[in-house]
Design a protein around this nucleic acid. Structure first.
Lengths: 225, 225
DNA sequence: CCTACCGATCGGTAGG
DNA sequence: CCTACCGATCGGTAGG
């Protein structure tokens, strides 16, 4: 699920067996630190919002000094953009895997179910702060950085189109397809505002419950008995 | 649509015909200024977010000096809470009117259509910055102020329950009703993220188009021919 | 509601 | 990645 991220650091050099063993540890540390900053920023951005989260907050939560985030990221906006790109890369990977592990003769309904499941997993499952940040901190991104995120997001959404078209052709889905797609995404994405994974232990809805409800709500009942 | 708002100012005294005519103008101005601040704050909070909008921004956009908003509102959070309360009061008024102007023998489907129409009107229609702020700046509210907003919001959502129950009883709606309601609200509320009223002039979808699509998407086709 | 102001915090940087 | 720091901005207030 952790896609390799483009690293701005120096390329991995072949390491000599002797001299400066510390350097090796530092190199590995750099990746860890950057990843730690990303996770911490995603969590705080989600909880408090981008503008209300200071780079000092993030540094402290990651156990660093106030200036240290700027060693890994050019500025606060670049950190936000990286969180979003990381989120979209994970979402695309999860989506691709969900479809790849499915039989070739899967029905459109089965394919939709897989897409919905993957969507909820990325949105509400473990380590799921990245996508909510992308969904709800959109306006804090600069125009330049927004373009990169949009490209991945367009690809993610395009996967749904043929599935929805097939369902409509089969009479299982009604309404203007463009608007229908936007409303389906709304129904799914809004769950990030109210769903609490903690409550599953106390009888709350599971992600599969959500998927069942979504399918029931969106799809016309199968006419064939 | 503009519900009377509880005014902290002095009660309207009977005015003498002579002496201090300025006082009268000031009193009327007070209400206007407060309302102007509310509208301006709603617009900027929606465009930039609560944390990214300074009280100076709001004052300047309303043609006031940096300290002036604090004459009308105790602090920045109280201004946000007032925007949300104003939004919810308008939403409740619109909802009540939509149902009141409907024949008593309206079908559950017709009642749902009215609720959806009213919802889109408040969310996307003219002067519609208040509700999006309430939906998307939730976490910026203090616990105390959140309670007041929640009460109005609960009332607004409760209106939908009997309508949805009737539709489910009639076989027009499938799925767990609690989750279904949350997903329907999600599909509707998400439109604040992508719908652009400006584009209607260029062939974009109208609010009625959105309502039609929502009904098509959520409701099972009527079995009776 | 304006003027003038304060303490606190913020993003970011130099220099190591 | 830390230390020490800077200029800018912010929410809020006194006093009229």
């Amino acid at each position: 699920m952790n896609l390799p991220h483009t690293e701005p650091g120096p390329p991995a050099e072949p390491r000599r067996a002797r001299g400066r063993p510390r350097k090796t540890a530092d190199e590995r540390d750099d990746g860890n630190r950057r990843q730690l900053l990303l996770q911490t920023a995603a969590r705080l951005f989600r909880q408090q919002g981008f503008a209300a989260t200071s780079t000092r907050d993030i540094a402290a939560a990651a156990g660093m000094q106030p200036g240290s985030p700027f060693y890994h990221f050019e500025n606060k906006e670049a950190l936000l953009a990286s969180v979003m790109l990381e989120g979209m890369q994970r979402a695309l990977a999860t989506q691709a895997q969900a479809l790849a592990t499915q039989p070739a003769d899967a029905t459109p309904e089965q394919r939709l179910r897989r897409l919905v499941q993957a969507h909820f997993a990325v949105l509400l499952g473990p380590d799921s702060d990245f996508i909510p940040v992308m969904l709800y901190e959109w306006r804090s991104l600069s125009d330049t950085q927004r373009g990169d995120v949009i490209r991945l997001r367009t690809a993610y959404e395009a996967t749904w189109v043929p599935v929805l078209q097939a369902l409509q052709a089969a009479g299982r889905l009604r309404g203007d397809l463009h608007l229908v797609r936007l409303m389906i995404f709304g129904a799914l994405n809004w769950s990030a505002q109210w769903y609490d994974p903690q409550r599953v232990a106390q009888g709350g809805a599971t992600l599969d419950d959500l998927t069942d409800t979504a399918m029931d709500l969106f799809l016309q009942a199968d006419a064939a008995p």
